[in-house]
Structure formats: C-alpha cells, structure tokens
Amino acid sequence: MGDKVMYEISLRRFLGLYALYARMDLDFLVRDARLSLMAIAADGLSNAASVSGVFLLSQRFGGIGGMSRWDVLFMLGYVTCVTGLYQLFFSGNNTGHISRRIGRGQVDHMLVQPLPLPVQLATEGFIPFTGCQNLLFGIGIIVWALRGAGHSVGAAFAAGTAGYLFVSLAIIIGLSYLFSSLAFKRQVAFEEIASTVVDDLTGMLSNYPLSAMPPPVQWTLITVVPAGLLGWFPACALLGQAPLGLSALYPLAVAVVIWALAALAFKKGLKYYVKYGSNRYNAGGHRR
C-alpha cells in the first residue's frame, strides 16, 4: 500500500536501521540495568521451566516415542532457539504481535514514515540486548544434546540447522501476520490474536515430541496447526530422517504457502484500513 514506487533499500541502510533499534534497546536496558537484568533472568527461568517438563519425562523413560532423551533435548533446544529468534527480531514494538498495533489503530504511525512497510516491520522489532537470552539458552541446550548423543557437528549440519530455524521462524511470523490481518476488519475482537497464535504455537504445542503420537495427530500438527514444524519435524530431519515419509523440504513448502496467504491477507487488510480508517487509536505509547 502506497509503496508502488520501488525504493532501493541498500544493505547498509538496512543494517543502519538494525543498529538504530539495537542502540535504542541498549538505552532501554541501561536505563535501569538492575531491573532489566532481573526481567531477563526471569524470562530465562520461565523458558527453562517450559522445556524442563518434557525433558524430565524423557530422562525418566529414556526417551519418548522412539526418540532418545538426547534427541528430545535437541528438539527442545531447537524450539527454544526458534522462540529466541522470534524474541530477538520480532518481539520489540509489537512487530511480531502485529495484531496489537493494527487493533489499536497505530498503523498510521507507520504510514507517515518514508520507508516501505516491510522494512519497518523487519527492523523495528530488533532487540539484541533484552531479547537474546532465549536464543543463547537454546544454543546451549542444542550443544549439550549433541555432545550427549555424541553427534559430530559439521558445516552441513550447522547450515541445515540454521536453514530450518529460519523456516520455522518464517512459519510463526507468517501465521501471526495471516491471522493478524483479521484485526484490520475487527479491531476489538482480534487485537490479541497474534499472541494466541504465537504464544500457543511456540510456548505449548511445539514442545511435545510427536513421535509418540498416532499419525492423524502428527499430520494435524504439521498441516492444520503446524506446531510440529517448529520443533519435532526439523529435529527428526536433522537427526536422521524426516518423519511420515515426507521430504526434508516440506517445512519450506509450508512456509512459502503461509507467507503467500499472509501477504495477500495483509495487503487486503491494509486496503480496508485506508478505506475505512480506524477509530480505536490508543495514545498510551503508540508502538506498544
């Protein structure tokens, strides 16, 4: 919307914007470092608690549904990294929970900036200082799991893991934007839809090793509710074989479909926004 004239955003400019938001995040952290560090520690503890239940079960039973305890730990580390990447790049200023900004009538603030909306959305959420703990924690768990299982990590494995992490992140963001587009039309009803999608998918469903589940549940959780693509499927594919006889590239195909739908829905929603406007403006901090 409104960006028909294509503007070249150089890599330098893009990195400059990331540096800007990193600086703002650092300023936020050092304003009251004691409180900020306590909040970061609490976030880390809560994250550890969210994965420890499944890990302890797999420890007790020596694995779950054909996955060894180290495989389960690797999967949990992977899920934590996905959550960490989301926090690092999209949890600042509600760029990931975009339904909040739409539902609060705050898209106007984006329309007055001389930048394409995708560039704004890709950079404004970057919080490397207050949002890095989950990613670091997740990497730690992955290293621990790979050492425990005696896996040798080569460049191909590292690149594969990075690629899958990118795809899983794309799936979360795509789903968030797809469902958030509903907030353009029904601002009150769908203001919090992104939290439901993101938090439930990353925080609850994706932590379970689906190998122990019957195939209909597995299929449901990699198609209709693709929580299995945020941990279980990539972990299985990276550690041996992609489950259910599917190609290892299946998550990529799903991500492409979700992004195409999200782009379409978001564009349509934005057209609706400029056609009908919004009377739900929330002045109490316009990027909250």
Partner: peptide, 14 residues
C-alpha cells in the same frame, strides 16, 4: 498520497 507515500513523506510533516 496513496501511490507515492514514501516520496511525499520525505517532504511532508503531519
């Protein structure tokens, strides 16, 4: 304003 949003916003203040 709709088609040339970015170019306008460089020269406009609201």
């Amino acid at each position: 304003p709709l088609r040339d949003r970015i170019a306008i916003m460089r020269r406009l203040g609201v």
